[in-house]
Write a protein that binds this DNA or RNA. Structure first.
Lengths: 198, 198
DNA sequence: TGTACATCAGTGAACGCGCGTTCACTGATGTAC
DNA sequence: TGTACATCAGTGAACGCGCGTTCACTGATGTAC
């Protein structure tokens, strides 16, 4: 049957939103088109009324995800307060919730191996964040790299103590003008982690 | 037929070596068991005489790869010269040759989504590098995160100029005691990149 | 305003391909006697 | 030292499953008249 244009657009956005979340959680390769559609409340066959291919969905999910995930981490935080941003980014909560976390921290390496189109989408999102951060551009790039690397490392390691040591080590050098040690309370902790740690 | 134990051990090592290289280049999911065996000069059926599963090969490849790839970047470099190490790590050559580059810069995010066994292998390799680096442990962790993040970002972006700007931005702040700007010649450039850029 | 009809986002079965894994078989090596 | 035989890393065909994608079909919406 034919559906109202408004509802269709809403569903299209839901597909992108859910894909973006699932891809961050499990990577492009480990999420099927069927799973994305189910998460969006549809059956897999309808997918091709919205996208030409899974590749195209990946690009849409990355373009959308980078911007939105950055805003979610930023939310409620003063734009100028880089220190607090780094503390949030390097929190245990962020480490354990990639689905709600930074897209670059979850998918940069997979994007690196993918198509030029996907890299272009990644790049646009990255540039947008840079211009939003303002200030010294090279400093912002460096900070992004250090934060991304810190969270990726903290997630890739099995031992909880080492994982926290990684977060702590990066926290101490980023967002504090690079010469000052830190007390950082990390008030940015929420319950119910989506990732099981052992 | 039965083969001499020595040759068998050599072939086993070749499987791990080739797997390690291929996984860095294209990720775990995009490399088939058959491709690995072909690269090692064998047919796919023999794989299960060496490993129980692809998962097991991944762990072996990561354990071997982290140590060896770090040594390759370090090679010919004074162990104390962190500045030169950072310059090498953040070179265009390293960005364009993941197969011969750092395992963590290529696979950390995929490991993060994988099994506890794989994380444990990653962790052992990481700890080994840390103890080899010596000096301030937290500083070494921070440096690893920043370098890894820098290369991952530089690879995930399409525009060559932006990619170099990323490498440059991280180079300026890492390995130089964090307060000094840098001329850095980056003498570590070699011909023939394995990755096509457009 | 009412009626006929084209549209097109849905559904769910089916297709085809690739991949991890299994299996029957081979035959040089290494060991038992 | 020679002979019989167990071993086991190889080969290559085959299996089974999952996934991206296609397709015939549906029926409420929106448009033409």
């Amino acid at each position: 049957m034919r559906y109202p244009a408004k509802e269709t657009a809403a569903r299209h956005q839901r597909i992108v939103t859910e894909a973006s979340r699932l891809f961050r959680q499990r990577g492009f390769e480990n999420v099927t088109v069927g799973e994305v559609m189910k998460a969006a409340g549809l059956t897999h066959g309808a997918f091709y009324a919205h996208f030409d291919s899974k590749d195209e969905l990946q690009a849409a999910a990355v373009a959308y995800g980078i911007k939105v995930s950055h805003e979610r981490i930023q939310r409620g935080n003063s734009k100028k307060d880089k220190e607090a941003y780094a503390d949030r980014y390097l929190s245990r909560w962020h480490r354990d919730n990639p689905g709600d976390g930074c897209t670059m921290a979850a998918l940069a390496q997979e994007v690196a191996r993918s198509t030029p189109e996907l890299k272009a989408a990644f790049e646009r999102g990255f540039e947008e964040i840079l211009s939003e951060k303002g200030g010294d551009r090279k400093e912002a790039i460096f900070q992004t790299a250090a934060l991304l690397g810190g969270v990726a490392l903290a997630r890739a390691v099995r031992d909880e103590r080492l994982s926290e040591e990684i977060l702590e080590s990066v926290r101490q050098r980023v967002g504090r003008s690079n010469f000052q040690l830190a007390p950082h309370p990390s008030q940015f902790e929420r319950p119910k982690a989506e990732v099981r740690r052992d």
